[in-house]
Each structure stands twice: as structure tokens, then as C-alpha cells.
Write a protein that binds this DNA or RNA. Structure first.
Length: 265
DNA sequence: CTCAGTGTTCAGTG
DNA sequence: TCACTGAACACTGA
């Protein structure tokens, strides 16, 4: 379930497993889709014998800083995840790469629907696709003034803008819906029609939703009960929020959108 | 059996 | 150029 908070939880998991440790073994699955612009063999060569100096994330992308370039970059797509374990018998299904560290811990990336990607980059931040991303709203939220000005300059539907990775990197479908719900804004409104106050509220809700979701390592069971998140699926239309308002489903910006017409204007 | 989906990209259109 | 739509990608689970 990889949007920014899930990906950040994955980065933390990878950091805890591998930071400061040397890679002694890399196993890969033959896959010419997930390995994008590279090969399983090249990724093995890049990692084997190297030490993980640090882990980084921007939006939904993660990469490992090694003691030699290039560095491996990971994107989870719709279904990817990192899994950490010690025994090879615990290797998860749909694994694409398994890294074994000198202290015996293993890290695997899984990807059941194969929309995830593994890439090699010499300077991930300076090269596509990470170089094309906008600000990471967890690490570097723009000031209210800049945020308001940016919205004023964009005609795109506000939900579409939130999903645009070149605007705010890491926001996905449920976060966009949650933030618009909490800010009381109709997802279909053009961004440049939001008032200054609405834009500031949107920014504040984006920051608070991300802060909370990251703080609980994207464990949905620990999201506040007031969030629409818990009721957006399941019974579909007619389901009620925690406050009793009806949730409707429409398509906005090409994505299924859950919203509360009585609260979002 | 059918279809939607927590994502991204690209062709086509206006 | 900008912005939007729909399709494609690939596969699972409801």
C-alpha cells in the first residue's frame, strides 16, 4: 500500500536492517519489467560487497547510498514492499530481490503486480525519474505563502494537482481524498479557485495527515478514527463517516474518489 | 468470470 | 505549451 507514509515506513525498515552493514549476497528473480533499464545481474554486481552508508526517500522513491556508485533505487508501484527476516525459509512470495547482510539479516523487495521498479543511478536526485519530482510534502513542505501562490497559478483540478508527482511527490489516491475531506474542499475544483484560507487549510491538512501516518509507520489500524480512510471502501456509497455524513464515490482525475458532498465545497 | 485497484506513463485531443 | 482523458502495463482478490 505504498504512498508516502508506507514508503517511508519501508525506508525505515531497510535502514534498520542494513544501514552500516555490508552486503554479502544478492539474489534476484529474472524479471525484465521490474528491473528497469538494468538487469538483475547488474543490480547484484552493484550491491555485492558494498556497505549501506545511508537510505534516502523522495516521494514514493527510495534509494540506498553505497560506498561505491551506482546506487540502487526502488519504487513499489501499487503493491511493492520491503520485508526483513533472517531465515531464507521466510522469504516472502513475489520477491524480486533479496539482499543478505554480513550480520545475517535479509531484506527482500516484493512486487506481486510487477508495477514496481528497481533502477541503478549514479546520482539519483539529479537523474530521472527522481529529478522530475516536486517537493516532498513530509520532508520539505513549502511555506504557506509559496503553497498559496502555487495553487493560484494552477488551473488543474485540485485533486489532480495533489496526485501530480511533479507537484507534490508522494501523495497518492487515499491521501489526496483524506486531505480534501479534512480541508472541506470539493476534489473537482480547479486549484486556482481556492481562497487563500482554503489553500492554507489544505496545506495544513496535508502536513498533519502525513505527520500522523508516518508517526505510526503507516499502520492504518492506528490512524485516527475520525479519518475518512477507514470508511472509504467496504460498503461503497451510503457508508457514513465517523460524524455520520454520507460518503459518495465519483471519478476525478481518472481515479476513484471518495468524498462527502455535505462537507466538501 | 468480471472488474477495480494505495501507481506511472504515454498517445491523443482540445 | 498546458491540461485532461483513456489506455496500457500486470496481476490479485473481491
Amino acid at each position: 500500500m505504498p504512498e508516502l507514509p508506507e514508503v517511508e515506513a519501508g525506508r525505515k525498515l531497510a535502514a534498520g536492517a542494513g544501514a552500516g552493514h555490508r552486503v554479502v549476497r544478492v539474489e534476484t528473480v529474472d524479471d525484465d519489467i521490474v528491473y528497469d533499464g538494468t538487469t538483475p545481474e547488474a543490480v547484484q554486481r552493484c550491491l555485492r560487497g558494498r556497505t549501506i552508508l545511508d537510505t534516502h526517500r523522495h516521494g514514493k522513491h527510495i534509494w540506498f547510498e553505497l560506498d561505491r556508485r551506482p546506487w540502487p533505487c526502488f519504487h513499489f508501484g501499487m503493491t511493492g514492499a520491503f520485508v526483513v527476516y533472517r531465515d531464507q525459509t521466510d522469504r516472502p512470495r513475489c520477491w524480486k530481490i533479496e539482499i543478505t547482510y554480513a550480520h545475517g539479516v535479509r531484506l527482500a523487495m516484493t512486487n506481486s503486480r510487477r508495477l514496481g521498479r528497481v533502477r541503478l543511478r549514479n546520482d539519483p536526485r539529479a537523474e530521472a525519474p527522481i529529478s522530475t519530482l516536486g517537493f516532498d510534502p513530509y520532508l520539505e513542505m513549502p511555506s504557506p505563502t509559496v503553497f498559496v501562490e502555487t495553487l493560484r497559478s494552477r488551473k488543474a483540478i485540485v485533486k489532480g494537482l495533489l496526485l501530480d508527482q511533479s507537484f507534490a511527490a508522494g501523495v497518492g489516491n487515499w491521501i489526496a481524498d483524506e486531505v480534501l475531506f479534512q480541508a472541506g474542499i470539493d476534489p473537482r475544483r480547479p486549484a486556482n479557485t481556492l481562497s487563500v484560507q482554503e489553500a492554507k487549510t489544505l496545506r495544513a491538512k496535508l502536513a498533519s495527515v502525513l505527520k500522523k501516518a508516518v508517526a505510526v509507520d503507516a499502520d492504518a489500524g492506528r490512524f485516527p478514527r475520525s479519518w475518512m480512510f477507514h470508511r472509504r471502501w467496504g460498503k461503497r456509497d451510503g457508508q457514513k463517516t465517523a460524524r455520520g455524513e454520507a460518503i459518495e464515490h465519483i471519478t476525478v482525475a481518472g481515479r476513484t474518489t471518495a468524498w462527502v458532498p455535505s462537507r466538501q465545497r
